[in-house]
């Protein structure tokens, strides 16, 4: 077993046994860590693997969250079915954005702007969507907090804790498998050089579209979790530009295109933000924005001093070799 696998096993074990020791507050922070690790991993498929910068990625969180929540609130459809619809809606949205962008050769910054435009358009649309609550928000009926009802995703915080943990493990394994698959190589080739990739028989359009669709669908599942965990949805926080930026922070800080990056990034950023908020509150002043300010500063520091992200740097320091995909 490689040292990386051991490290990963230890991390997983820590998260599995944590609820036995940690209080509710710490658990809720760990849920946020895992949530950002999850959506960061999903975003990483599109940007880190296939090289397509999506800056409106929260559109998939929002669509997934709203779809599953609306089905539950209005039709009583349990989350376990709603998540398929959620993923389907997000995949459809992703294919539209991707197909339009890639077919018409919208590249680089322009593509990033296109994704923002779609996300913002959708945000304003949902603000006027009165059936889904509009700006007033969509609220899920809060069920018993003692049950462990996975079908309806209602119940104890511990259930949500282990659910998001399972999702993180799942997406990690999936991404690992993808990186070692033909599709993964195809994406990496497209990311590095599209002309060369095409000359080697790769259908560049299809490769990019697959990445967007998969990333969108997986991100939407994160959205479903978000909706049922927090029980309320507002267009501004489901589709806002800030959310899109939050999604991309962890994988960038951790290391773009790496499997560990999103996890490490979330492990660094969320506790950092929480710690700073707690510290300022302990000092007796309410400083809205201080957490984000620190995110901004750490992002700046990372991009300036560790542009590859923390993980590639740490991996060398820990002597874990240079090939994360291994052989």
């Amino acid at each position: 077993m490689s040292r990386q696998a051991i490290l990963l096993g230890l991390l997983l074990a820590a998260f599995v046994v944590a609820p036995a020791f940690a209080g509710p507050y710490l658990l809720s922070v760990m849920v946020v860590v895992m949530y950002f690790a999850y959506v960061g991993q999903a975003w990483n498929i599109m940007m880190g693997f296939a090289g397509q910068l999506s800056l409106g990625h929260t559109i998939y969180v929002g669509l997934g969250a709203y779809t599953a929540a609306a089905l539950f609130v209005h039709f009583g459809i349990p989350a376990i079915f709603g998540l398929f619809a959620a993923a389907a809606v997000a995949v459809a949205a992703g294919s539209i954005i991707g197909a339009l962008g890639f077919r018409f050769g919208v590249k680089g910054v322009y593509f990033a702007l296109l994704t923002i435009a779609f996300a913002e358009f959708t945000r304003i649309l949902f603000e006027h969507f009165t059936a889904l609550g509009g700006t007033g928000g969509l609220f899920l009926p809060v069920g018993s907090r003692d049950s462990f009802d996975l079908i309806h995703l209602r119940g104890h915080p511990l259930m949500f804790y282990y659910l998001i943990l399972a999702m993180c493990v799942g997406i990690f394994l999936l991404c690992r498998k993808l990186l070692n698959s033909r599709l993964g190589y195809t994406w990496l080739a497209v990311r590095e050089d599209q002309d060369a990739a095409a000359a080697l028989g790769i259908n560049v359009f299809r490769a990019k579209l697959t990445a967007v669709m998969l990333s969108a669908g997986l991100t939407a599942l994160g959205g479903v979790f978000f909706a049922f965990y927090y029980n309320n949805l507002f267009p501004n926080q489901a589709f806002g530009m800030n959310r899109s930026i939050e999604i991309i922070l962890a994988p960038i800080v951790g290391g773009l295109g790496t499997l560990f990056g999103p996890i490490l990034g979330a492990l660094i950023l969320t506790p950092l933000g929480e710690g700073i908020t707690a510290a300022t509150e302990a000092m007796g002043f309410k400083a809205a924005g201080i957490k984000q300010l620190c995110y901004g500063l750490s992002l700046l520091a990372i991009v300036k001093f560790l542009p590859e992200g923390v993980w590639p740097w740490l991996r060398l320091r820990l002597g874990l070799g240079d090939g994360e995909e291994g052989e």
């Binding site: 910068l53 960038i252 809205a288 201080i290 984000q292 901004g296 500063l297 992002l299 700046l300 300036k304």
Partner: peptide, 26 residues
């Protein structure tokens, strides 16, 4: 550097400015 690096740099500056002004001006 690649476009996305420039983007991240400027976004980090934007985040600092927005939240700096939130801290400073409420």
């Amino acid at each position: 550097k690649p476009e996305h690096m420039q983007f991240i740099l400027l976004v980090s500056m934007a985040i600092i400015m927005v939240n700096g002004s939130l801290l400073g001006f409420g």
